[in-house]
Amino acid sequence: MIHTNRRNFLKKSGLAAAGTLLIPSMSFAVAPNEKYGVQLYSFRDEMAKDAKGTLEQIASIDIKKIESARSKEGLYYGLSPKEMKETCDSLGMELCSGHVALDKDFENTMRQAVESGQEYIICSSLPSKGQNIANYKKVAEAFNKAGESCKKLGLKFGYHNHEYEFESDKGEVLYDVLMDNTDPDLVHMELDLGWVVVAEKDPLHYFKKYPKRFPLWHLKDMNMHEKVSTEFGKGGLDIAMMMKHKSDSGVKHIFIEQEEYASTPMESMKHNMNFLKTL
């Protein structure tokens, strides 16, 4: 049975018919050798207490890729960039990306990213406030410059959306303004699929409008009433449909993120990994 929230979303987005057509082919939506990652904010408290021990637990449930997140302990939860890389390597995981701020310390952020061996650094929130076209064009210019700086160091710069970027100003969706004014060779988008559907937008529309522009995903199911994350299959994101169309988006790294949990972060992540394996 389609979850009520998801059914409402599908009706709004025009995907209801497509969803019914997908059902017979769901088992082919996910490649069996897909290597999934996790955004470490999902384990933020555990990482703050015991970074290496938590990474060991994450590796034990077959997660192969890591995206770090800036915290009060630093970019790598108290570990040095080299320690973070070595720990992931020893556990058979790849440190691919990290959430950072585009701020006065950005030079040091890039330096640490190079030392860690990661490929991407992702700005996790807008560097200047203003829900209007003028600010988003200003942000796009800053992102292009940051992308140039990263490219010189062999890094890739990107941006991670929330819900608010899909608000409109003067009839234009602000996220589209950001997309239209950033250089695809310099700014690599990480699409948080959960926030897209909460904003009542269709991720498939963005895959089509901006093909191959989303090398990173946050795969996040959402409770559509409370606007909080939930375990896979319990919310409003049609995960099988997303997987079927992932090549359209150009995704290379899929990071699972969950910020609220039915019990514990590890139990939720085990559920999510099992869900993906049984699609």
Rank of each mutant, 00 (worst) to 15 (best):
V196A: 02
W195V: 08
D221L: 03
V197Y: 04
E226I: 07
P215L: 12
F214I: 08
F232N: 10
V198Q: 06
Y210D: 05
K227R: 15
D202C: 13
G194D: 02
T230F: 02
Y206A: 10
F214E: 06
K201V: 00
F214Y: 15
R213I: 07
L216H: 01
P203H: 12
N223S: 05
H225W: 12
K201P: 02
G194S: 04
G233M: 07
N223Y: 10
K212A: 03
E226G: 04
N223M: 09
S229A: 06
P215W: 11
H205E: 15
G236M: 03
E190M: 13
K208L: 01
Y210K: 06
Y206T: 05
V228Q: 13
L191H: 05
K227F: 13
D192Y: 08
V228W: 05
K209N: 00
K201G: 03
G235T: 11
G235Q: 12
D202N: 15
V197G: 00
V198I: 15
A199Q: 01
G236P: 06
L219A: 02
D221H: 11
N223R: 08
H218S: 02
G194N: 10
E231A: 14
E200R: 14
L193P: 11
L193E: 00
D221F: 01
H225M: 13
Y210L: 07
L193D: 02
K208R: 15
H218G: 02
G236T: 08
H205R: 14
F232T: 10
D221V: 04
E190F: 04
L204N: 09
Y206P: 05
K212N: 12
D221C: 08
K220L: 01
G233W: 11
K212T: 02
E200F: 06
G233N: 10
G194I: 04
F232Y: 14
V228N: 10
P211L: 09
K212H: 04
D192W: 11
L216G: 06
E226K: 15
K227P: 00
D192M: 12
M222D: 03
L191M: 15
P211R: 11
G233D: 07
